[in-house]
């Protein structure tokens, strides 16, 4: 995973609360057996005027010009600014894959849904929570100033605006470490393989029925 330390980028404002993962990447694209290529279908139903199909070339599809990500000023956005409970619903990791494939590295909202939040940080995306009032002021600045950028410093846990205003944010140490170092979590866990085996050995005595081999009846 690509380490994530400092991201400076254009901010795209998605002014909706409770954005669900069905909206982030609709179901028909979940048929893919790959991790990549979801970017053109990010927010597919909002972004295009027709119904998208997997494997389709999206370059000549009719765009919904009212949708924020279709506005030229947000084309190179790397930071998505949005509202409460972003990423609710399905556990599909295709949602962060699509966001990452589009180019987003940081998401800013007052709150995120749990599973989505976890999935993001395993894909080099930082979901960052700020208080509602701060998010509101960032929305206003983004709307008013074309090309509005923010600088996110993960090691320092700060978000800095162009005028130098700095906001701190909280993140749990585990997630921060994994993101900053770009670590492979499975590799890290397997360093403790002996402890997993020891746990299994102990549990075999306590709950032996959980360790009898599963046979198809």
């Amino acid at each position: 995973m690509e380490p994530l330390t400092r991201v400076e980028g254009v901010v795209a404002p998605l002014d909706r609360s409770n954005v669900d993962t069905d909206a982030i990447i609709p179901k028909q694209f979940l048929k893919s057996i790959h991790r990549t290529g979801f970017g053109p279908n990010l927010f597919d139903e909002w972004r295009y005027r027709d119904e998208g199909q997997p494997g389709q070339d999206c370059s000549d599809r009719p765009l919904n010009h009212d949708f924020v990500l279709n506005q030229p000023r947000y084309q190179d956005a790397r930071i998505l600014l949005t509202r409460t409970n972003f990423g609710c619903g399905s556990s599909r990791e295709h949602a962060p894959w699509a966001l990452a494939d589009f180019g987003f590295r940081v998401l800013i909202a007052p709150s995120f849904a749990d599973i989505f939040y976890n999935n993001c940080s395993k894909n080099g995306i930082l979901p960052l929570t700020l208080p509602e009032e701060t998010v509101q002021s960032l929305f206003e600045a983004t709307w008013e100033q074309p090309g509005y950028t923010l600088t996110v410093d993960l090691p320092a846990q700060t978000v800095t605006t162009p005028d130098g205003t700095r906001y701190g944010f909280e993140i749990d140490p585990h997630r921060k470490h994994m993101l900053v170092e770009g670590l492979d979590e499975i590799g890290v866990t397997l360093e403790h393989a002996d402890e997993i085996r020891a746990y299994e050995q102990r549990q075999r005595a306590v709950t032996p029925w959980l360790f009898s081999d599963v046979e198809a009846s």
């Binding site: 991790r35 556990s91 599909r92 990791e93 962060p96 599973i115 976890n118 999935n119 395993k122 894909n123 749990d172 585990h174 979590e185 499975i186 866990t189 397997l190 393989a193 997993i196 299994e200």
Partner: peptide
């Protein structure tokens, strides 16, 4: 019982564990 993403599915397949808070 809880839902997980695909990275965690892989983690569980490989280690029989998940990292949780």
């Amino acid at each position: 019982a809880f839902g997980i993403g695909t990275s965690e599915v892989e983690h569980a397949l490989a280690t029989q564990t998940v990292v949780q808070a």
